[in-house]
């Protein structure tokens, strides 16, 4: 059964999987990161769907603006309540692509980079369920959660008991403009800048140390 599934995996997945052959460099400045954000119809991993994905890649400490993208996915599911948040209507003028096409683009930019997101468990969860719908395995990337990292960067006296921080709180803390909040790429950008500021405070000496600090807590059901 397993071997059968493997054979059926499409070429883009194989290329993605192959990029993991080389392990991550322990020199943080050489490690590639992909900062990602998804806008969804809701917060239920099973029922809700991804409406758009914003992603940018950090290579040698630089965000490559040209490679950053924002995708809008065709989805049958629609939730009028969340439209006010992300502003993506069911029939809007933006060009939409099929979910599988979107996943393909995400895998292409991701490769074996460390995946960074705010509440990364939610984004990977959404991506993994949609990968599963298309018969694909889960993401293989190491992940970092800016909410967790931010918590660890604060002096104990300022940490919240529930260790939950919104992206707006981070943006306010680091004085990042929120002009394009709640667009997938806009949020990814805010996450990336916040991530840099947090790294500046945490000063990890190796990739391993950073990953340890950013290990996300289990996804809170109550969220």
């Amino acid at each position: 059964m397993m071997t059968k599934t493997k054979k059926e995996l499409p070429a883009f997945w194989k290329a993605y999987a192959a990029s993991f052959k080389n392990g991550l460099s322990q020199d943080l400045s050489k490690v590639s990161l992909v900062v990602l954000d998804t806008e969804t119809t809701g917060l239920n991993l099973k029922k809700d769907r991804i409406l758009s994905i914003g992603a940018l890649r950090i290579e040698n400490g630089q965000i490559l603006t040209k490679e950053a993208f924002e995708l809008f996915l065709e989805q049958e599911k629609f939730n009028a309540q969340t439209v006010s948040i992300h502003g993506i209507r069911k029939t809007s003028a933006v060009q939409k692509i099929a979910e599988l096409e979107g996943l393909k683009k995400v895998l292409t930019i991701l490769e074996n980079a460390i995946l960074v997101a705010h509440h990364v468990g939610f984004d990977t969860g959404m991506l993994n369920t949609s990968l599963k719908r298309h018969g694909l395995p889960k993401l293989k990337n190491k992940t970092l959660d800016t909410s967790v990292l931010f918590h660890r960067s604060l002096p104990r006296s300022q940490q919240k008991a529930n260790s939950h921080y919104t992206l707006d709180e981070l943006a306010a803390f680091f004085n990042i403009s929120t002009s394009d909040r709640h667009t997938a790429l806009g949020d990814a950008y805010i996450t990336a800048i916040a991530f840099w500021h947090i790294i500046g405070k945490l000063k990890p000496t190796s990739t391993k140390e950073l990953l340890k600090k950013g290990r996300f807590f289990s996804w809170p059901i109550s969220f």
Binding site: G54, L56, T183
Partner: peptide
């Protein structure tokens, strides 16, 4: 391709 990051940059 223009995107929200490039708008941000141009705005600045």
């Amino acid at each position: 391709m223009q995107n929200s990051i490039s708008y941000r940059i141009a705005d600045f």
